[in-house]
Nucleic acid binder design. Structure first.
Lengths: 235, 235
DNA sequence: CGCGATATTATGTATAGACATAATAATCTG
DNA sequence: CAGATTATTATGTCTATACATAATATCGCG
């Protein structure tokens, strides 16, 4: 009974994972309650709770009050992707960061951006397109619409030295956002910038951010061919 | 002083977020210690700890022992992406799931797969290619190499009714993995399956999973044109 | 003044006990 | 027997206290 005494929540988590992988607790199996496990492991219930709660957040376990804790039937692999500031991302690759403003104008946003920024009544927005370079070659093209009703200060910014990407994170923090990854065909202009052919597959990120109920900005990031988002998954 | 009494950790988290967004605590600012906040909010330190720890995990705060807690300078947006079983993903879209085995053979893996599965000495692996359909139209093509040294049972599986994707999650659970998102050009065969043209941009997921030190499988999922991974980010 | 030993401090975590909450099981009632 | 009510139960969370740990600040000494 008295196992070698699991004293911290990580050790308990490891032991639970071991039992799952060793098929002692197969998928769908309802595992003992927190009090039982605490007694078995010789620790407080709160410690077991921390271990199991963390595993539930990772998608390994499913917990429901009264019903108990069971091993997930279909352990979805939950990957957490960090999307840093572009300059930071390039510098962390060991490359020299470069920036070039492509265009900047105030206009009524097209349908796709309008739906995100001002769904009720069309309002003028700032449209900025800028190129981020890594070691003098094009890394990503930032095509951004900024709501001038939410961030009127943006109208005073030239964006010729500092990118909207960088300016916004320190100026207009968001409460929540919405992000999508996809693939697209390079336009003629993009193909020219990335030194590839029109229609070449490029990786695309679409992101919109809000401050409470008010939309701040919506951006499309088109990356150079070959770009990949890479991360680990822990089960 | 005595604010309207924040009693649970979520309320404290909301209040901390409010102060950050209201610029009371600007980026880089060192916020009061846990004991001080506990006194101000009229709750236990553990409650404050839970609130701040969760915010640190989300990337909003940066905490270091002795140094204290500060508002992150560059709040990276951390998106958590759920990658479910393909059948489940299709059914949750409200589509009818279909499956078709394309090819199945035992062979020595090519360089890309060999590096992941058996970096030391080449070993025969099972190569399965299968098509997942949503409402009778191609949804994703699964191109998978399975290590027969780690999962010898796979040799007995025909994979003509059940996909490797689904069989593996319930048979060979992984301890950790590695995942990458990218864009690629459709091959002639893929273009035929997806009813598009050769070279069309397609979204691709490459994933490799391990059971401790032994590689289980490496898979490339090629999605139909227009496919997007979508998720939210909470700041 | 430089450098290593020591003190300080904020976070990290464990514990026992208590109450809250949600979901199920059991029971009562018409 | 159906439907509403109550009891039970496992998780969720809070509290107060204690000790652990890591990083910094300070002190003492050559």
């Amino acid at each position: 009974m008295s196992q070698p005494q699991f004293k911290n929540w990580q050790a308990i988590q490891d032991e639970v994972l071991r039992r799952i992988h060793a098929r002692e607790w197969p998928p769908g199996h309802v595992i003992p309650g927190e009090v039982d496990l605490a007694a078995e492991f010789g620790c407080a219930r709160a410690t077991v709770n921390r271990a199991l709660r963390t595993l539930a957040e990772a998608g390994i376990l499913e917990r429901r009050r009264k019903a108990g804790t069971r091993v997930a039937l279909h352990p979805v692999s939950r990957a957490t992707v960090d999307i840093p500031i572009i300059r930071q991302e390039i510098e962390e690759r060991g490359s020299a960061y470069g920036y070039r403003l492509v265009s900047r104008e105030t206009a009524l946003p097209p349908a796709r951006a309008r739906i995100m920024l001002c769904p009720d009544t069309p309002a003028p927005c700032l449209h900025v397109r800028a190129l981020h370079l890594a070691d003098d070659s094009a890394y990503t093209l930032e095509d951004r619409w900024i709501s001038l009703t939410t961030v009127p200060e943006a109208a005073d910014q030239a964006f010729d030295r500092i990118s909207p990407n960088e300016w916004l994170v320190t100026t207009a923090p968001f409460t929540h956002g919405d992000i999508a990854f996809g693939a697209a065909a390079a336009t003629a202009e993009e193909a020219g910038l990335f030194e590839t052919e029109t229609g070449a597959p490029v990786f695309v990120i679409d992101r919109t951010t809000w401050d409470h109920a008010r939309a701040i900005t919506t951006v499309r990031l088109v990356y150079a061919p070959g770009y990949r988002i890479h991360t680990g998954i822990g089960g």
